[in-house]
């Protein structure tokens, strides 16, 4: 069953911001990455799904239920961590966590304490006195303490130190193993790369690509770098699939997508001194999507 289903979801603001005809599904048990630069519409999409703002047109379902008609029911099983964490001043961490838990009709105390201990969060401090990273931890705990079926994270790692990030990712993987579906929005690609099964790439409010992480990484692009013994003609690389070709003296670098035999034949015809073939990281693939359009 699809946990999240967007159909032509559109939200326009007065200005150009917003999302246009966004359609995709997030399946049960997935960790779904949602990537794009700042201002691409990631937060707008999430806030629409959560009913904080209303769609201009199109519709969306969560757990098979319409977000506008069954918002309250849906939210019983959603845990959400907003990108910026602001909480009531003058409240202690534990007061806020108990307040958060009080909205769910089950006892969350045990899980709350587990999570706080895991993230080394001091629950007796005032939220006002916390650093950004510690506030983020409060956000994580309040988002997970009711063991939601769907976890929605909007830029969740900002402010967390690498150790905590690691622990947080482990926590997410654990929740995922227990059956939670995760929607993970980010502009930091390496973290999406580490966690997600599938990714949707969004740009200026539109879906650019939706692919399995494995496809995105393995099948498509390779980065080639070679050093030739003699000067290289640019025309030798004029075959389909070569992009971002840069030739500087005897050094050649490019991205390649397509049949590897074809490109290796081209390389074989050149007298080379050195050769690197690398798996591009998501960042490069991602930049590629953006440059192509520009």
């Amino acid at each position: 069953m699809s946990i999240i289903e967007l159909q032509q979801l559109t939200k326009t603001y007065g200005s150009a911001r917003g999302i246009k005809n966004l359609s995709f599904r997030v399946e049960e048990g997935e960790i779904f990455g949602f990537i794009g630069p700042n201002g691409a519409g990631k937060s707008t999409t999430i806030r629409t799904l959560l009913g904080l703002i209303y769609p201009t047109s199109g519709s969306a379902k969560i757990f098979g239920k319409d977000i506008l008609l069954h918002g309250q029911e849906i939210k019983k099983e959603i845990g959400y961590l907003p990108s910026e964490v602001f909480y009531y001043d003058n409240m202690k961490v534990k007061d806020l966590l108990h307040y958060s838990a009080s909205f769910y009709k089950k006892d969350c105390t045990k899980r709350m304490n587990e999570l706080a201990a895991l993230l080394e969060l001091d629950v007796n401090k005032k939220i006002d006195d916390l650093s950004l990273g510690n506030k983020k931890k409060v956000g994580i705990v309040q988002g997970l303490l009711h063991e939601p079926r769907l976890i929605i994270l909007d830029e969740p790692t900002s402010g967390l130190d690498p150790l905590m990030q690691q622990r947080f990712f482990e926590l997410l993987l654990e929740e995922n193993k227990k059956g939670s579906t995760i929607l993970f929005s980010s502009h930091i690609l390496s973290e999406v790369q580490r966690l997600c099964h599938r990714v949707a790439i969004i740009k200026e409010g539109e879906l650019v690509s939706l692919e399995k992480m494995s496809t995105l990484k393995a099948n498509n692009y390779k980065r080639f770098k070679l050093e030739a013994s003699t000067a290289v003609e640019e025309s030798s690389f004029a075959i389909e699939g070569v992009t971002e070709l840069v030739i500087r003296d005897k050094e050649v670098s490019f991205m390649y997508k397509g049949n590897l035999n074809a490109i290796l034949r081209v390389i074989a015809s050149i007298e080379i001194a050195n050769l690197w073939i690398e798996e591009p990281d998501l960042e490069e693939i991602f930049m590629h999507y953006y440059e192509k359009e520009a």
Partner: peptide, 17 residues
Amino acid sequence: RDKTAEFLLVKPITRSM
């Protein structure tokens, strides 16, 4: 104003409640 709407209104309550 305090940006806590993103905390409170994602809880299982309606705005009317």
